[in-house]
Structures are given as structure tokens and as C-alpha cells.
Design a protein around this nucleic acid. Structure first.
Lengths: 197, 197, 197, 197
DNA sequence: AATGAATGAGAATTCATTCAT
DNA sequence: AATGAATGAATTCTCATTCAT
């Protein structure tokens, strides 16, 4: 293995490759030996880059928020509100396993940290903010209450889709959500939006 | 009467007392020694009733569904839709820590079983059904799509309330949800429903 | 291995058998695995009785003080002061390896605890007191300064004898020490002591 | 001039700067990484100059003897025997932490080498000799038994002062020691010695 | 000569589970 | 049925040492 290494770069690479593995198997299930083997390095090397198992975990939480937004950023802005909502939901559906694992990783982290110390990290809070900002902008919601409602619904979707205990008709749900947003926007603004189209 | 009855009885008692403890601390965090101490028995005795740690876990998942519905059953049916929704949300808010822990226990279980084998158990599926039935009846929703939408939203609420990353105005959310339900019930049907009472 | 065990008794037995081993090899050199193997138990069992390696160490320090006094208690009170001193020194000479190891164990402990937190334990302080009391009584010294002087000298002897860098003529040293004690006792008292014989 | 000179020079500088650090923290406590960081070099460089951790240790033991004598050499020869003894003890008291750490370093070394192979090194033996010579000269003791007695006492002082388990009245101890020396020098010899000067 | 990334054996400690009593 | 002592593999983390650059 080469000695000329950009420490940060390699660190990020390890992180990125850890993410998939940890999200897949679960933080507490994966041992540092497992992870090292998966990454193709020795445990010593792993610890050279991350002083504690927890350190990987913490950085992962930040890392995954970026991943999410990258995914979301790929969504086309075109079409009606209904179409954009459906597009978003379909993306979530196609990534449902990934998203659930991510959510669980998040919850495992929260548990480990102790729920008393919420919020977990500045980065986590920031990520959530960014996520909500994306939503508001993508769905053109300026009412914060409405935005938070949608966020809560999507959060539920992340959990319930893969577990499969609730039968979810994505298209119909997206129509419901759209109608809620439409009717809740202040009339004047709604009119403007409509006029634009 | 044979001793088997006592055996089952004691087993159930241990189970019931394990539930709170495990939900509180987390399945993987609690050691069998911890649990035994909490129950006031020896590890040997614990193993006498439950051959494996996993066995306790599995039975617990079924057990907790019952607990949930017991909680919900205590809600008064009186008042407007808005009031009933708010009442439900307030109950969830007051139990938010408990509910999150329960959700995590559930997810820990799902992870351990492997997400491929979903649904986890007949009992779990049945519980979810019962939960949705309760919702439909309590909120007088006859449209299954609407019911599932509400269920997804409440699922999200369970997660997001205690984590605190989204600022949730319970009252306003309940109004939003109520208006959605109101406007989605087909006018004729809504009228009929109202007239019937 | 039997299950009817007096926990404290067995604990003490393990402790006593650990002492020799640890004093011999050195606290930091001996691993818990080594120690467990030496004691003929599993590491799990060792930890069943002692929650941390440090716990063994701490109790050992107390344990060894008792051992010392047991040794000293065997000394005959007969004879002149010179004879008693020589007898004491000879005992120390015959046990010199043991005493050095013990001293090192002590110092290792002090180092580990950090020298800032001296004295290390109530038990340690008590042991030193008992040791000095024994000296005062055995050599009939009532002056505390004189007693502490003798104690310091003997402490040096413990270190220097086995290291062998200083050539020590035990008999001559004991005469020196005796003459010092004799001439330092207050005249009246000295006379009494002499008259008694 | 060949590079070998620079190599040796740098090596000695590293050694001298290691001394304080190791004596302070303890040989076994300090890792090579710690030491390298303290010295401001990489571990690779450290290993370039010292093939093994033990190598540093061995050379250090010799190094510290020189340090000690340097300290002692600074003492004024003026005054009575009592004054000189007290001066020496006060110096030891002011350096007690340093001296204890040094002693422990020594003992750690002895332990590691195995007590069977005593004396540890020619250099160590030589240092002790020099130390005793200094004592004899400084306190004007020509009797070797008396000198070794004083050496043993001071050795004990090194240990017991910082541990603080024995209450040591330095001034009174120095008077005791002086009176012992005075009375042990044969009268005629003592007179002669005085006259000579 | 100098660097610091890489190694992997080994340390302390934990814990589900077994089993003699 | 009940106990809790005993087990040992597995876990996280450390550290002297090597080696490619």
C-alpha cells in the first residue's frame, strides 16, 4: 500500500465504503474487525484513521445526510405539484431499503448517545434543516407548519414502506398530499403560483 | 391442577416485567444478567423460562402491540374530528419516549431477523391491522387510502417528536390532518355520515 | 468445580495465590490471561471475583501488609537491642527478594494511581502505621523521630540489599543502628531499660 | 568530518530530552509514539536512532546517574557536618518527585532485566560507586561501613519522602545522622581529621 | 535521513450460555 | 425449580515495530 496518501482523502474513502457496510449490517452488529476486513485494511489502520468506533459512526451520520441530498438533488423540478410529489415518493420507494437502513443507523446512534442528549450533533441538526429546506423549495411550500407536516409524513413513509405492514398506494397518497398543500397555501400566493403555469 | 399453569403464569409475568425494561434500555444493551437482576431472579432461572435471549425478544414484539392498543382504547370518543385527532396526538406526545423506544425495539428486531423475511410474524401483522382498524374507527375514516395516509403520518410522528429535529406544532398539524380527512371524504358520503348521527 | 462456594473465602484464596505471582512477575507484566491460567480458572471466573485488574492490585497492597507483619510477628523478643536488630535485619536479608518485589509492586501501584493522589489508600496508611508500631515496640523506641529514622533506614535496606550496588555489612550496620538508638533515648528512660535487664 | 559525529550528537540530544519525559511518565507508560511526539520527530526517525524501545531505556539508566551527581556537585562544602547533612537532605526534599521517578525507572529496568542478572550494567555499578564516593567526601566519612549506612538511609529517604507514609522531620533526622557519624568516627581519627584541615 | 502509514498480535473486558449443586 | 459460579469466544482498542516512499 502506498505511503504517499492524502490522509483526508483516504479517510473519506474509508468512510464512504464503511457507510454501505454499516447501514447494511447495522452499527452494533458490525465489529471493527469485520469492518477492517471489509475495507481490506488491518484493524490498526482503521484505528489510525478513526480513533474510536463511535467516531466512524458520528461522521457517518453527517455523511449520509449528504448522500440523501445528492439523491434528492437529482430530481427534476418540472411538472405539477402532484407530479413532483409522486416523483419524490417514487425515488423514496426505489431507495426504500437504503433509507430504512439509514434511519435505523440514525436511531441506533440516538440510542447509544442517550435520548437525553438530543439533538445529537450540530451536523445532524444542520442536515435536517437542509432536508426541510429542500422539501420547501422542491414542493414550493412557504408555510413552515405545512413543511413540517410533510416532513413528518415522509419520515413515516421511510419506515413503513419497507416494513410493509401498511399497504401504501403511492399515487393516491401523493394526490392527497398535494391537495393538502394546495388548499393550505394562502390564497394570494396560490393564485400567483397558478398564474405562472 | 398441574404445574404447567403456574409455569406459564410466571413466564408471562416475567415477560411483562421485561418489556418495560428492555424497551427502556434497548434490546442489545441489556444483558441477561441485567435483566435477571431487574426481575429479581438468577440468570439460571431466567434461562429456565426462556431458553435464549432471542426468545424473550420475539415474544416481546407481540406483547407490545397489545400494550399500544390498550393505551389507545382509553381515548374518549367524544368531540369533533379535530378534537379527537388532537387528543390522539397529545397522548402520543405524552408517551413519546415510550413509543420511540418501542419503535426502536421493533426495528432492532426487524434488523436481527433480516429485512428479507418481512413481515416478521403473524402476530405483528395482526397488530398493525388492529392498529389501523382502531384509527379508522376512532377518526371515522372509511377510505382505506386515507386511513393508510394517516397511519403513515402518525408513524412519522412517533419518530420525529422525540428526536426533536423537526419543530412540530401539534395543534396546527392536527388541524391540517382534520381538514385533509374532511375534504377527502366524498361530499355525499360525508353528509351521509353526519346525517346518520 | 464446586458450586457451593464461600464467595469471600474463595476470593481470598485467589488473592493470596495472585500475590506471589504478581509480586514475582510484576503487575504490569502479568496479563489477566496469565493470571487466570496461573490460578487455574478462566478469565471469566477471574472477573467474576474481581471486576477489574486494578481491583486485584488494590486489594493486594492491603494483603501484603498483613503478610509482612505476620513475618515480623515471628521474631523472638529475647536478647539485647543489638541482637534484636540483627535478628530483624537477618530476617529481611533472607526475605530480600520477596521484599523488593513487594516494594516494587507498591511503587508500580503508586505510579499507576498517580503520585498526586498520595496516600494511596486508607489501608496502606494503616499498614504503614502498624509497621512502625511494630518497630517501636520490638526495638523499644518511644521517640517518634527515632522511630521514623529507623523506618527510613530499613526502607532503604529493602531496596539496596537485593540490588547489591552497596556492600552492606549487616552485623556492623545493626551495631551502628543500636548505638544510635541507645544514645538517643532520653537518659532516664535509657537507664530504666538498662536496669530491667 | 563524517556524518557519524552528527549522528552521535543528535542521538545524545534525543536521549537527554527523553530522560525527563520518561522519568516523569514512567517507562512502560510512555509509548514510542508519545516519545516521538514529545521529541518532535516521527516514530520512524526515533527508530532510526534507537533500534528498540529497550535501547533507549538502557542508555537512560546510565544517563541518569550523571544527572544525579551533577545535582549533588552543586552543594556547598561549607559549614558543620550537621549543616552539610541538612543541606543535602533539603536538596533531596526539593527534588523528591524527580528522585522517586528516577528510582522507579531504575527498578522498572531491574525488573525487566530480571533480578537474577544483577548488577544491571557496569555503568550502573560505576555510578553507585561514584555516588558513595561523593557522600564520603562531602560528609568526610572514611569508614566504609558508616558510608554504606548513610547511603542506605538516604536510599530509604528517596522512597519514603514522596510517598508520605512516614512523617519525616528532616532537621531532626539530619541531627541524628550527624551524631551517629560523629560518635562513630574514632575519637583520635576525628581529631586528626579536624586538625589536618 | 526522514516520514508516517500499515501491521497484527495481544491487552482488558464482556456476556450469552451451561451446569453442578 | 432455582441458584450463581464457571466458561471462553468475541469485542474494542493499543502499540512496538516495519517499510514504502
Amino acid at each position: 500500500m502506498p505511503k504517499i496518501v492524502d490522509h483526508q482523502k483516504y479517510r473519506n474513502e474509508l468512510l464512504s465504503r464503511s457507510f454501505e457496510f454499516l447501514a447494511d449490517k447495522g452499527y452494533s452488529t458490525v465489529t471493527m474487525r469485520d469492518l477492517a476486513k471489509h475495507l481490506g485494511v488491518s484493524t490498526g489502520t482503521l484505528y489510525h484513521y478513526f480513533p474510536k468506533k463511535e467516531a466512524i459512526f458520528e461522521e457517518l451520520v453527517d455523511f449520509q445526510a449528504d448522500q440523501d441530498l445528492l439523491l434528492a438533488a437529482g430530481l427534476s423540478q418540472a411538472g405539477t405539484l402532484e407530479q413532483r410529489i409522486e416523483r419524490l415518493m417514487k425515488l423514496m420507494a426505489s431507495e426504500q431499503d437504503y433509507l430504512l437502513k439509514q434511519a435505523i443507523l440514525w436511531l441506533e446512534f440516538a440510542r447509544q448517545k442517550g435520548f437525553e442528549n438530543l439533538p445529537l450533533s450540530a451536523a445532524a441538526t444542520r442536515s435536517c434543516k437542509r432536508y426541510q429546506d429542500f422539501l420547501s423549495q422542491y414542493l414550493q411550500i412557504d408555510d413552515s407548519v405545512l413543511a413540517s407536516f410533510v416532513a413528518v409524513y415522509l419520515s413515516g413513509l421511510t419506515i413503513e414502506m419497507p416494513l410493509g405492514n401498511i399497504e401504501i398506494a403511492l399515487k393516491k397518497h401523493s394526490l392527497l398530499l398535494a391537495s393538502l398543500i394546495r388548499s393550505s397555501q394562502s390564497p394570494s400566493q396560490t393564485r400567483q403560483t397558478r398564474n405562472k403555469k
